[in-house]
């Protein structure tokens, strides 16, 4: 990407540019990690079960963002074929033309999108089960605070 320069000044400039690019190019990943850790912190530091589930959701969404970041290509477009598809089915010539057109456009990677679509739906399923469990715990113990549940359990055991 950066043309290799002969003189050392330009080389060191190129190296500095590389470091700066690294910083910019990894900013996405680092913010994702910060978000992930915020979710993790909510998950382990808070006693309220519903807030724990919110933390789990935050963690989960940050993983989604990581995957989508991996699939993004700078200057790319969403992976929806630009030429359309109607003419491609009728004759071989049209299909070849369509494929040619598709090859010219830069698309982002569709595979992470598919995986994350699946993950979002599975995520809402697990969230709903978690919330249902919280509701049941509330019905059984009268509280959804971890500490109070532990206290009740200890009392029952003693």
């Amino acid at each position: 990407m950066i043309p290799v320069a002969a003189n050392p000044l330009a080389q060191s400039l190129a190296a500095q540019l590389q470091i700066a690019q690294n910083l910019v190019s990894h900013y996405n990943y680092w913010v994702v990690i910060v978000l992930m850790m915020v979710g993790f912190h909510i998950l382990i530091a808070r006693g309220n079960l519903i807030r724990k589930i919110v933390g789990l959701n935050v963690f989960q969404t940050s993983v989604f963002m990581l995957y989508i970041s991996l699939g993004k290509i700078s200057g790319g477009t969403p992976p929806i074929l630009a030429g359309g598809v109607g003419h491609g089915e009728t004759d071989a010539h049209g299909a070849a033309e369509g494929a040619h057109q598709a090859a010219e456009v830069l698309y982002s990677n569709p595979l992470p999108h598919v995986l994350i679509l699946t993950a979002i739906v599975v995520g809402i399923a697990t969230t709903s089960v978690g919330l249902a469990l919280a509701v049941r715990i509330r019905e059984a113990y009268g509280t959804i605070e971890e500490e109070e549940i532990n206290a009740i359990e200890a009392e029952a055991g003693a």
Binding site: F64, G71, K72, P78, P79, S108, I116
Partner: peptide, 8 residues
């Protein structure tokens, strides 16, 4: 959306 994942 910004990262081209419109379906997601």
């Amino acid at each position: 959306t910004v990262m081209d994942a419109v379906d997601v």
